[in-house]
Amino acid sequence: MDLEYFINLFKILINGLKTSLEIFGLTIIFSIPLGIIVSILARSKSVLIKEITNIYILVMRGTPLLLQIICVYFAPYYILGFTYNRFIAVIIAFSLNYAAYFGEIFRGGIESIDKGQWEVAYTLEFNKVQTFFIIIFPQAVKKILPAISNEIITLVRDTSLAQVVGVTELFSLAQKQANYKFSIIPLLLAGGIYLIISTILTIGFKKVEKKLDYYK
């Protein structure tokens, strides 16, 4: 076990980490706005829209993400006979899945805000969009921040599921190295990297929570 081995291993894993972080970042970029839309649709006055959204949430939360990734990647092949970029498939599956979770969290947060806030904004002639983004949503975010932080830290670990359709991210590379060298070290190293990222995120979220503590 020499230093060179470690440095090489680290270099290999960093490559995988890049992919993992890409999955992580892109999923957040897409799933949070999508989640906001899901939360709005889930509160729609139209029963049809509401029910469709509820079924979507149910399916996304009620089946394994692993299966969803496989479906998103392979369904076009079986149905239409074409294949496409695995990485894109992973991002689509992750975004759709996390949008459902975020949507449900956002909905809970929005519904926890006193109806009087909507009403007073209405009498002051805010329109619905203004009321939502200027008054309601900021208050909801403060309440649901711990739940969001949970979800985002889960996402860090979930990125390892991307390997199921052959996207080489951090964990799959670590596994390959572990098999190749017949050693558990690469896996432990990968575990350490996940832990560091989760720790950084946890500290970051604590800071944001503190920042939002300026009002009650």
Binding site: D114, V120, Q130, K142
Partner: peptide, 26 residues
């Protein structure tokens, strides 16, 4: 204008922001 029984101030905004917001937004 209506002054609600429990006032319904916007908790995340300062006093002056509470007053300015409707003027600017609406």
């Amino acid at each position: 204008g209506l002054i609600f029984q429990d006032y319904n101030l916007f908790p995340q905004y300062t006093v002056i922001q509470n007053i300015i917001l409707p003027l600017v937004v609406a």
